[in-house]
Design a protein around this nucleic acid. Structure first.
Lengths: 130, 130
DNA sequence: CTATGTGCAAAGTGTTTGCAAATTT
DNA sequence: AAATTTGCAAACACTTTGCACATAG
């Protein structure tokens, strides 16, 4: 795999944030340096970087997001602000894995998203979503 | 909410299977009875049924699937056959919930998908996906 | 030099929506 | 009769792809 300046920057952008950015977010950032870059290039590179394990693709509903943190960890999505926060609960994954291994499943990966209200929004009144 | 024959059947179709069908699968089934039904109607109804809690929407990557089982349970996706199986591990959710509650999160819902190889495919040679 | 990556535009997939006609209550 | 639902088709959002040109190694 060649390291074009574009690919290098795309990777750096994903590594620069904890916001689990979408392709579009990355596009906007990278455009500041390469104004003529195309979304296609962004998608191609994010896909490749995911495939070789440099980054990780996670799904927020049907939207793909990208995460530089490929180590096993889970996500919490706040229904007030929409933000995806990392959750470090190592013991959880191990607990689940053990549970499933005992039941004959061969678990390669676990995708967990917790949906609820994060600390900051816990005591705010609910924003009406209807 | 009115109960049109179409809506009634759409609901019945989702309730008739454990395959966690996509909108398209439901469409094919329902078309046998209502040949002129449109995909739009399928989507509208699946969305409404989800919203009132009759069924549940789950995500398989970016594809929406629908599940009549709204009780708390998790899913296992086999990377060989693509099938989504239900997983009953009540204790897991409770374990996680407790863990997060202790950390200040207010968890409303947990979306978990396990990805790996199910019993039936455990000893088969790997189908090449490249 | 050659394989790989880029920008562009078109196409693809899954889903939503506006509307007039039909149907449920 | 009034409000909701349908079928249709167009629009949408996100993602992928074919191609000719450019570039990294």
């Amino acid at each position: 795999m060649r390291y074009s300046p574009q690919r290098k920057l795309i990777k750096e952008v994903v590594f620069s944030t904890n916001t689990h950015p979408s392709a579009d977010w990355v596009y906007d950032k990278v455009k500041k340096t390469f104004p003529s870059i195309s979304l296609g290039t962004i998608y191609r590179n994010l896909k490749q970087l995911s495939e070789i394990g440099t980054i990780r693709t996670i799904y927020d509903g049907s939207l793909a997001r990208f995460d530089w943190n490929t180590a096993s960890h889970n996500h919490f999505k706040c229904i007030e602000c929409g933000k995806m926060t990392d959750i470090e609960i190592d013991s959880t994954n191990n607990f689940i894995k053990r549970n499933l291994d005992n039941n004959g499943f061969d678990v390669h990966d676990i995708e967990i998203t917790f949906i609820g209200i994060c600390k900051e929004h816990k005591n705010n009144k609910r924003i009406n979503k209807e």
